[in-house]
Design a protein around this nucleic acid. Structure first.
Lengths: 332, 332
DNA sequence: CTGAAAGCGCTTACAG
DNA sequence: CTGAAAGCGCTTACAG
């Protein structure tokens, strides 16, 4: 039951370990076809499967990356993770999944683990003020790219972000153009940067037309349940509103549910806009009007960028911005 | 920029590598408090982070597992993956994510990779006739547990499954008790075992009452889009039906959408039942009546079982069955 | 065209 | 109470 190693193959093929290693690593221009054949034959015969951890130790490359995100159960993140894994797999990399639940403590624990496991890089979707974790990564010289959520103090590192401000502004303009005036805005959690950006897109646009009213601003947590809860709450407080802008689709889904339950007709009585364009948003009835992020593209690109950093390529642009776009569907 | 190793610590603390290693591995009953302190101090000073790949090579344990599943973007799998990762993390294990798109080829490629990376175990949600991959795992003596989808020929290995047949039977009985007679059934893809089990639950129950009619049976692929497509299709073919049983929630979501669009009132004109109870199913309007699998529990347990196999515990039961239960909500 | 030897960073019997 | 040495399965300069 001993595992077959390169030495076993060397023995069977009647050559040295060096030669075997060279053949497997395609550094074999100088090796005769005959030996090469013998080696492949022996490997086949013995059902050889190489030991990557030994290889990693010798080469200082693990061909693994870590992906740190709040919760894989959230469609936005699972779509992102899928894109990253696809691209990583394509380039021969494995992905280690880490769910942080937005806990800075968990992030730090995972970062330590990933460094210990010698990952070649990390894709980091921050759950909050993640400076300590990021500094740890940096101090250990592990390549990383920040995705979706920008972190103050790290603007000079690699990042893939969405133009949140502009996206929301576009959505608000659209609502205004359609005659909406009393637009409720539901912010995301204040710890994360994107919540702020999206809110500012709303605030500034409303202000532009002298329509901003802070009594129409609420905060929740980017979950369906959160969307339900805020909506139930402000339905009690506010009497008049003709549109609701939720900072992400998940909250919009929860909100729409409450609205329908409370007898509102969407979009007749009230328009609703979300943000993200997760897959499910076009499958509910009515279909959700939303600000689409190119999630899959952003995921793929974030791995591509990481790979270029890992390979120490020159001229890799630091910060990458993606422009979201309004998708008009049934709710607004 | 050299990485700090155990030797550096040994040097700074004025002891041998052996002693340092012993201290870090808590095999240090025999080591004086003084040396221990010196070692911890040195480690702290140097910001030491252990190298797990070296450790893995020496101990033949990686504290990584692989999880092979069709698509993390599918809520059923992301909820499952989340449960597994939570439990794994709790026990100090990392999870390597592998999306197969139900491709047997991809499964095999991932299995090879995972074995190469010396994972301590694999959780396998099969995408089809996955015998070759499974045999590879088996031949390399890697512990594994089959989840959700049973594979013929592997009934004597570890597995975590749902009583699909009984679940569907319960749902059908419920529909019948509510006076439904013309019940359409949408099967999952025929390559996977659970499709068959769920279908048989329907067929046998309908037969019991002399109501089975194969013209009411359709097949799709477990996706939302698939649910939409079959529904559009059979709406053309069948004139009379009072209920639809979709083999999973995702297809039910797609189907309901088409029904609503086509002017049907759910559940007045037609009752709908799904299977799985993914989180989203209670957030659509009307809320989906479904057969709930204990997804999170099954995920957690599958890791727990895997861990026991890894640790070579005795008396680990091979096959674990979970009983699903009918959750009555708005659509039936 | 091929091999002996050192090294990657750990652990672990064994010896003292 | 502690250390020297061999070993895990690879790679890679170097030599011939």
């Amino acid at each position: 039951m001993k595992k077959v190693t390169i030495s076993d193959i060397a023995k069977v093929a009647g050559v040295s370990k060096t030669t075997v290693s060279m053949v497997f690593n395609k550094k074999d221009e100088s090796i005769s076809d005959e030996t090469r054949e013998k080696i492949y034959k022996a490997a086949k015969e013995l059902n050889y499967i190489p030991n990557f951890v030994a290889k990693s130790l010798a080469t200082n490359k693990s061909f693994s990356i870590g992906i740190i995100l709040p919760d894989i159960t959230n469609p936005f993140f699972s779509e992102m993770a899928r894109a990253i894994e696809d691209e990583a797999n394509f380039s021969g990399y494995n992905v280690i999944l880490c769910n942080t639940d937005n806990s800075v403590k968990k992030e730090e624990k995972y970062v330590r683990l990933l460094i210990s496991k010698q990952v070649d890089g990390i894709i980091f979707i921050a759950g909050g003020e993640s400076k300590k974790s990021l500094n740890l990564i940096k101090d250990n010289h592990v390549p990383f790219v920040l995705v979706d959520r920008y972190i103050e103090g790290f603007e000079n590192f690699y990042g893939v972000f969405c133009r949140n401000y502009e996206g929301v502004a576009e959505g608000v303009e659209y609502l205004l153009n359609n005659g909406k005036r009393k637009i409720v805005f539901v912010k995301g959690p204040h710890e994360v940067e994107i919540s702020k950006q999206r809110f500012e897109g709303y605030r500034d646009t409303m202000n532009k037309y002298g329509l901003y009213d802070e009594n129409y601003v609420f905060e929740s947590d980017f979950t369906i349940d959160g969307g339900k809860r805020v909506t139930e709450e402000f339905l009690k407080d506010i009497d008049k509103f003709d549109a609701i802008f939720y900072s992400n689709d998940l909250m919009a889904l929860g909100g729409i549910k409450v609205l329908l339950r409370s007898g509102y007709n969407v979009p007749k009585d009230v328009s609703v806009i979300g943000f993200d364009n997760i897959k499910i948003s076009e499958f509910i009835e009515p279909e959700l009007t939303t600000i689409a992020q190119p999630i899959y593209e952003m995921g793929k690109d974030s791995f591509k960028i990481l790979l270029r950093v890992i390979n120490e390529e020159e001229d890799v642009e630091k910060v990458h911005y993606y422009t979201p776009k309004l998708i008009i569907r049934g709710t607004a």
